[in-house]
Every structure is written in C-alpha cells, then in structure tokens.
Amino acid sequence: MGLSVPALGGVPAGRGRRRIDRMIGRVAGPSLAVTYLSLLVLLPVAAILSRALSGGFGAFWQAVSQPEAVAALKLTLVCSLGVAVFNSLAGLVIAWVLVRDDFPGKRVVGAVIDLPFALPTVVAGLTLLTLYGPDSPFGVNVAGTRAGIVLALAFVTLPFCVRSVQPVLAELDRETEEAAASLGASSATVLRRVVLPSVAPGMLAGAGLAFARAIGEFGSVVLISGNLPFKTEVASSWIYSLSQSDDLSAAAAVSVVLIAISLAVLIAIGLLRRRFEIDETV
C-alpha cells in the first residue's frame, strides 16, 4: 500500500492571523454587540427613566396620579388581568384537546393558535373590528367598549397561554393518573389533585407572559377601542396621546410605571417557576 510516512514537521497553518482573530473574537465582537444593544435599547430605556424623573419626584407623581392616567392604568391592569386568567383556562382546554385528543388537521389547528403571534397587531385589531364592530354580520358591536379591549387582548395573548401549557401537558406521565385512578380517585379528583398541580406552573408562566404582553398592547386595541378617555383608553394609548401633545416627561413617567409592573410580573414568574422546577426534580 503506497503510504507516505508522515513528515516530522507536520503541515503548519497560518500563524500570522492569530492576534487579529483573537482581538476580533474577544474585544471587537462583544464591543459591537454591546454598542448595538446600547444604541437601540439600553440608552433609550435609560432616557425614559431619566426623563420621567427629570422634574423631580413631584412631577413624576403628578403625571402618574393625573385622573386620566390613573383611569388608563386601572383599565389596563384590570383588562389584562382578566384576560390573563381567562385565557389561561381557555389555553388549558385548547392544549388539552391538542395533546389528549386525536383528530386530523392538528397542524392546522396549531397554525391557527400561532396566527395571532405572527399577525401584525393592527391587522389583528382590524379582523376583530370587522367581525365584532359596527359592520358586524353577527350584529355584535363591541367597538368603543371595554369588551372590545378584552377581545383584542384575548386574541393577541392566546398563543402564549396555549403554548406554555402544551409541552407540560404532553410530558405528563399518564401513569401517575392511572395510579391515582387505581387507588379509587374519580376523574374529577385525578384532575384536581394530579393533573392541575403539574400543569399549574405552565399555566402560571403563560398567564404571566400574557399579562406582560397585554398591558403594553397597542396596535390591536387602538382600532377597536376608540380610545375614549376614561372609558376605553388603555395606558399605551394614553402614553401615545401624551407624546403627540409633546408632554414627553409625563409620557415617560407613565411608561416607567408600565415597565415596573412588567418587570415585577416577569421576575415573579421566573422565581415561581424556579421554585416549582426544583420541586419537580424531587
């Protein structure tokens, strides 16, 4: 067999590029990334915080406690909370049917569930307005009402609620349910004591994501709600109109409140999930 004996020196690769490679990898790359992040996100967020407090705490408080602001925030929180809770349950039912039932066209159903995530928010609002607004073929008109807001929020948060429960449900070990049944538990009991506790973390996460998304939602709400002050004006609409009237400091102040609530919810969810996950590995 014609086999070449390996030369002792080996075949060297280029040595000169070393230092440049290392420089780009360790320094230039991360710096560019951080710069991009700063220009687009970090500086702007800092600017919001700064502007919100630019007039001192007094101005901040005034902006936030203004009647219209309070009304908008209250409306936003109530609607978002309601939607989060309701959609968690709806999400559970839908996920249940997806996981435990067998029917043709699961993929299509999956696509329908994800559609609100892929669809632009204005288009979402438009679709709901078309069907449940002034020209509704059903004669159902929720335009300009709080129900309309809830509808829009339900639409956009649906995917979060379904997809956070679905994998948990799918991974559920059927044997624990069978064991419970063999020990004499009725279906309802099995559901209550075996299934629900296991999917609760997933539902909670979904509800949290839904809530965080809902309080900031704008595009889908703006068409159907009519943005009537004190009636159907959500926090994001109020911020928008503040920015249009150039009251940027007030807008920033209300924004800070929204950000704080979002962060609080997301951190709480994170902590709760960590706690639950630790329990599950026992």
Partner: peptide, 27 residues
C-alpha cells in the same frame, strides 16, 4: 436578560424612548 428587554416593554414605550434619545429635545 438585557437582550430580552424589548419583549417586556410596550412598543409605544420603545418608540417614546427612541424619541427621548434621538429626537430634537433628546440626548
């Protein structure tokens, strides 16, 4: 966590924040 910030903030707030940095009266 920082990379995920845009997911936690209302788009309206993001727009506002950009004005506060790059707008006429911005930084």
């Amino acid at each position: 966590a920082l990379v995920d910030i845009p997911l936690a903030i209302s788009p309206v707030v993001i727009g506002l924040s950009l004005i506060l940095v790059y707008g006429k009266s911005g930084w």
